[in-house]
Write a protein that binds this DNA or RNA. Structure first.
Length: 444
DNA sequence: AGACTCGCCGTCCTGGAAGG
DNA sequence: CCTTCCAGGACGGCGAGTCT
């Protein structure tokens, strides 16, 4: 822990609030010199007994102040002032904007983007910022740091939502932490990279570019159970990341270096192929892994078939108790498979053309495939435009499917956005057209 | 002990209705 | 035309419980 971070931990302790879990690094990693004397002063100014909201606010304002460095803070004697003339800025917005859907951004004095937002009614939204009270309202805190405001109109609320997401991802404005999708409601199945990969459940699909992710799914707990069953059936490892793996065919390894006893009991009871004790060749382990991937993709019932065969074998050998155990496992796995199918969001259903008529009766057609917008086209009118539309449709919808159904990590936010949009506006879903239908309707 | 998960609850953001 | 108020949904903090 750097001295600065340690000091800022003290800051949080001082105000009686815990560092924001998970996000603390984002908020604390900026190297800022904050002295305890300054914190004490701020605390005194705020009063010693504060409700939680006020305490967070205090920390918020203080961090705002210290972003420019302690020197700048010291220089800025007396009360804080807005960076720019708010009356002039308000007049600019008042005169220059219309009540239409659009996105806006607040920029700081260095031109850095502070906040990106969207609204169905841009003008009303922007003017509401000028009524916010400093320092209590977040809107005012953003406004006071802003040197200027930029905005752009969008043809519809949907278009504005999409544009906002893309701008936030591109610009990563510091006041947009709030916009982060609720990661707690979703989880992903991760195939870890490295020797003898294993399956894990994770809530963060953005961290590891080398991992392969499936999802998003709901309820990490149930997905975890499903994975345990799956790993058991296929003999995949389930041990800690730091356990060394040795395949039997890794001949360059000195025999003496290989551990003789497995790190866990799963190999002994036949639930793990035992890559930790070189009990399996890489080829066999990789084949089992492929079965797991296919199962998660929904393209293969290999694990279910394996269990069915096992059950039949026990039954044939008159081992009825073992057969019953296999049947129970099979049922659990089938149930979990059903859950995974049900929980799998959007990927299968969010493939269509989505015409949206917006401002000035302008209609845009969004070509959505597997939960992400692949093209945003003007509603075709002329013959040439119709041909173009047909060509785009063909290129997007007829493109070969990815080998798996996993969602690339950079597309997950958009998938979640579309998913929540159509959940919130079920009526919009009925306006979508299947790819072939769209070509008949809009194509040449 | 630290990381992770989950449910509860307060806060924030937004759109829309009502009123001046 | 502008402001105020309200409702609904999304989001984050917190604490308890569980896992490693």
């Amino acid at each position: 822990m750097t001295p600065q971070i340690a000091e800022q931990r003290d800051l949080f302790a001082l105000f009686g609030v815990a560092p924001l879990r998970g996000r603390s690094d984002e908020r604390l990693s900026v190297e800022r010199a904050v002295t305890l004397a300054e914190l004490e002063a701020a605390k005194a100014a705020a009063g010693s007994v504060l409700p939680t909201a006020e305490m967070s606010l205090c920390v918020d304002v203080l961090l705002d102040d210290t972003t420019d460095g302690a020197a700048a803070t010291r220089k800025r004697k007396g009360k804080r002032k807005p960076v720019t003339d708010l009356e002039a800025l308000r007049e600019l917005v008042k005169v220059g904007t219309q009540d239409r859907p659009g996105t806006y951004r607040f920029l700081g004095s260095e031109g850095e983007v502070l906040y990106v937002g969207k609204s169905k009614q841009l003008r009303t939204r922007l003017l509401s910022y000028f009524r916010a009270e400093w320092p209590h309202d977040k809107g005012a805190r953003i406004l006071w740091r802003a040197a200027r405001i930029e905005w752009e109109y969008q043809p519809s609320e949907f278009a504005a939502l999409l544009r906002e997401l893309r701008l936030i991802k591109q610009l990563r404005p510091r006041y947009n932490w709030m916009m982060k999708r609720d990661a707690r409601h979703y989880c992903f199945v991760k195939l870890t990279p490295g020797v003898a990969p294993k399956l894990t459940v994770t809530r963060d699909a953005s961290g590891d570019e080398r991992g392969v992710y499936f999802g998003p799914y709901l309820s990490a707990g149930r997905v975890g159970e499903a994975l345990r069953e799956l790993s058991d059936v296929l003999g995949l490892r389930d041990c800690a990341n730091d356990v060394r793996m040795h395949f039997r065919d890794q001949e360059e390894l000195p025999v003496l270096a290989m551990p003789r006893t497995p790190g866990c009991i799963r190999h002994e009871i036949g639930k793990c192929l035992g890559p930790c004790v070189a009990a399996v060749t890489e080829r066999v382990y990789t084949a089992q892994l492929a079965l797991a991937r296919a199962f998660l993709d929904g393209t293969s019932d290999g694990p279910l078939e394996a269990l069915t065969a096992r059950m039949q074998a026990h039954s044939d050998a008159l081992e009825f108790e073992r057969a019953a155990q296999s049947r129970d496992k099979l049922q659990r796995l089938e149930l979990l498979r059903l859950q995974l199918e049900k929980l799998r969001f959007a990927v299968e259903t969010l493939t269509f053309a989505y015409p949206v008529t917006g401002h000035g009766n302008e209609t845009r057609v969004y070509l959505v495939k597997r939960g992400t917008v692949r093209a945003d086209l003007k509603l075709p009118v002329s013959r040439r435009e119709q041909l173009e539309f047909a060509e785009w449709s063909r290129r997007i919808f007829h493109a070969p499917e990815r080998p798996t159904r996993q969602v690339p990590t950079h597309e997950i936010d958009e998938l979640l956005l579309l998913s929540s949009w159509f959940q919130r506006n079920p009526g919009e879903f009925s306006r979508t057209l299947a790819p072939e239908q769209a070509v008949r309707e809009f194509g040449a």
